[in-house]
Design a protein around this nucleic acid. Structure first.
Lengths: 217, 217
DNA sequence: TAGTGGTCTAGACCACTGG
DNA sequence: CAGTGGTCTAGACCACTAA
């Protein structure tokens, strides 16, 4: 099968509402199912996803409406950013006693540490510190580029994020170019497969002067 | 109609898997639809939600499995907490020039400010600062209790959260009982109706020694 | 080859709302 | 009363995988 029908319907609806203003109503599910010549359940599945993304909202008895664009669901931690370039700062591998228990390996096991930065408009938006076992790296990864792709494949993992307030670590003061005692947020992410195997640990240090963490439902 | 069938099926599945260990497979959708005497689509809708909640996961060709309980989707900002008590610290109403534009009202409009704390095991987990127009308060709210209920009705609003790192505000140092220069996270939430009307603004100051913000997908 | 989840159809009845 | 979204059914075919 090619692209699922409901995905095509989703695109058609998106195209249809592109010029509509906020809170205007869209045709009913039955009308759309006639127009697109698909069953009502297929239209529903398409609309379900658009509602989930915050692009549409429903009213049980009145119909379906276009959301205000400002209200479209946001998630600046997970969304890919445009105008953003990744840079590898350095990488090394050795034992890390503090990290090993998190990755569920013995403390004498070799662990890879990869540090990179993300820049936007010439400024450092955040610094990423990635830890994974050298064994996993050798087995699953071809090169560094693939690690950066790996951490963006959000749907393939169960990712737990912990938000930790701290003062900027001294070793990052110069790189980020922000004051020494600036409070920042560090997000610690643990990537696990759905069956529970820990894949990697990641610490992201956000530059509050460049990037704001924003989430909506 | 009483409780939707798929919700009942969801409960039955939850009951069924309660004693299963992580990664054990559950019966196929077809088998469950026979067992519960409902259509396969109804079973699917139930499983869809359980997958969405992180309780189950699917493998396209192998079946559906029980997640490791540690991997169940978490969201400590949105989830109601047990063992938590709310306390009103103080409330007042007057004009707030900085807040008025956020609530989309003229700067001379009367705004309500409600400050409360949440305690867990005798310690202050966070402090909540809530701003809403006095007009809205008089029109929609009976008493303070209802405000605290309002901010927990997450599904009724489009809520945008911004995570801001800061040093703990001096006026909260004593209340929270944490050091003066402690870095903390303040979460600024804006509640809007789905049609775009701004309902309220809320600032939550998290005590990092009591409560950790944790989110998973 | 048998069984899985993913998609899709063409109907149906419900509760609720607005004119 | 007509129209809406919400739920539900009993089928169907697909791609893929494990035996």
């Amino acid at each position: 099968m090619s692209r699922p029908l409901y995905q095509q319907v989703k695109s058609k609806i998106l195209h249809k509402i592109a010029s509509l203003s906020a809170n205007s109503s869209i045709p009913s599910e039955r009308a759309l199912s006639l127009e697109f010549e698909v069953s009502r359940m297929t239209v529903r599945k398409a609309i379900d996803e658009l509602v989930d993304e915050g692009i549409l909202y429903r009213d049980k008895t009145r119909g379906t409406f276009v959301s205000n664009k400002e209200l479209v669901r946001k998630n600046t931690i997970d969304d890919e950013k445009e105008n953003e370039t990744c840079h590898l700062l350095y990488m090394t591998h050795r034992t890390f006693e503090e990290i090993a228990p998190i990755l569920n390996v013995p403390i004498y096991e070799d662990i890879m540490r990869i540090v990179g930065s993300r820049q936007r408009a010439g400024e450092i938006a955040n610094i990423d510190e990635i830890y994974m076992t050298s064994a996993y790296y050798r087995r699953e990864v071809e090169d560094i580029e693939e690690v950066f792709e790996l951490i963006e494949r959000k749907k393939d993992f169960r990712i737990t994020k912990t938000f930790i307030p701290m003062l900027i670590p001294v070793q990052f003061v110069n790189i980020m170019n922000i004051p020494m005692d600036a409070p920042i947020i560090m997000v610690k992410s643990i990537y696990r497969s759905f069956s529970g195997e820990t894949i990697l640990m990641r610490k992201t240090y956000y530059n509050p002067f460049v990037e704001t963490i924003e989430i909506s439902n």
